[in-house]
Amino acid sequence: MVTVALPETIETAFDVQGLNIFYGAKQAINDIDLSIKKHEITALIGPSGCGKSTFLRSINRMNDDVPGFRAEGLIQYDDINLLTDNIDTVALRKEIGMVFQNPNPFPKSIAKNITQPLKEHGIRSKRKLTEQVETNLRRVGLWDEVRDRLDTSAYSLSGGQQQRLCIARALCIHPEVLLLDEPASALDPIATAKIEDLLLHLKDHYTIILVTHNLQQAARVADSTAFFYQGEVVEHTDTEQFFSNPKEKRSEDYISGRFG
């Protein structure tokens, strides 16, 4: 288990300044500033098309291949700007893991979903691989449910189990940050609760950014919440404060369901 000891003074994981994102002529993110703290869960909320997913995917550069995509500004991470051209996206994505809206395990056995990424990143020892399967499945609370059928297809799992497997798969390569793009929106309430519970356990070791449609979810798990609207960050503050006493009129309207 790696709990990374970076200098205590650095509390901020990402410092976003003056970020603009375009798809061709269309501007998706409009000059936002945002500071994301380490070892916290930051929820990004807002109506569809507000830019929250676009922002999330620009952190690990998953939008690089989208035709017409262009990002300008600063996403400061430790001592570098993640938007510069010379970023090694492979190393970056290893360090900043991602979990998607729809569970997307590989069409292989449950165990191989963990061992394949490990092998890909150079771990060969059989003993270590088996050990890691157990460690990571335990971390997401899946071990007791699947220990007897590690060799069956990942698709034999329920949607919620698949999503936890995907989280385990993201964790097994020791990321520092986890980006979650509406990870529970395709799941039923019980599976959702398990995922939320898991996130609360994980935040001690990882910086977590959670995009969600579900306001209650943000309220339940996030330490701070950022409200995106039409490509801008309307308000970013402590979650409790955001939901009980929002500063901005638009935040209040959104929380009370007046739009979106």
């Binding site: 790696v2 430790d78 001592d79 993640l82 970023i87």
Partner: peptide
Amino acid sequence: METNLRASERLVRKS
């Protein structure tokens, strides 16, 4: 561990 390296050393493409 390589995690003691700064991001500029971990994440910038080597030549």
